[in-house]
């Protein structure tokens, strides 16, 4: 099963490689991994999307917790949560294609953020599934470049995951 793990870790050089090294050394799956500092610059938030049996995901959580730089590990699957991913995508959009491209962007609630004579660059957020659906809906030959951020997640409601 797919799990979204949310981590707080010391914003130290090397903390990221400890986490990624753990996943490769123990042959755990990693679908995506994002990391950036939080409101407290000494702490980073990392979101890792992984998959495995319950037993394996439990081990992943324990192994992450064991890393000396890791402050907290939460499996967002155990909470009601929201997940989002950002995609930047560059399309060829020449005269006759431009309207069609624009309509698709509207349907998927994206935004055109850069325009040239031949291209549109689009920004879109949503679940991974939605972004996949957008890519599928496009004609393959239109796509010049896709840049995805990987998943970020947060729990719903009053509860906050803090250090």
């Amino acid at each position: 099963m797919r799990h979204i793990l949310s981590l707080l870790l010391e914003n130290e050089a090397g903390a990221l490689s400890r986490v990624s090294g753990l996943f490769s050394a123990r042959a755990y799956n990693i679908e995506s991994l994002t990391v950036a500092p939080t409101e407290d610059p000494t702490i980073s938030r990392m979101t890792v999307v992984t998959s495995g049996s319950d037993q394996i995901v439990e081990q992943i959580g324990k192994q992450l917790n064991k890393l000396v730089d890791v402050i907290k590990v939460v499996d967002l699957n155990e909470y009601r949560h929201i997940e989002r991913e950002l995609m930047l995508i560059k399309l060829t959009a020449q005269k006759e294609d431009r309207d069609e491209a624009k309509r698709m962007v509207e349907i998927f609630r994206g935004r055109i953020i850069d325009v040239t004579e031949n291209t549109y660059t689009i920004e879109m957020t949503g679940t991974g599934e939605k972004l996949d659906a957008f890519i599928e809906a496009l004609d393959d030959s239109m796509i010049l470049e896709v840049v995805r951020s990987g998943v970020s997640g947060i729990s719903r409601g009053d509860k906050a995951i803090q250090s």
Binding site: G14, G21, V68
Partner: peptide
């Protein structure tokens, strides 16, 4: 040294 020893230490510091 930090990279080489990372998988076989409890922790390391530079």
């Amino acid at each position: 040294s930090i990279g080489i020893t990372r998988p076989c230490v409890k922790h390391n510091f530079l």
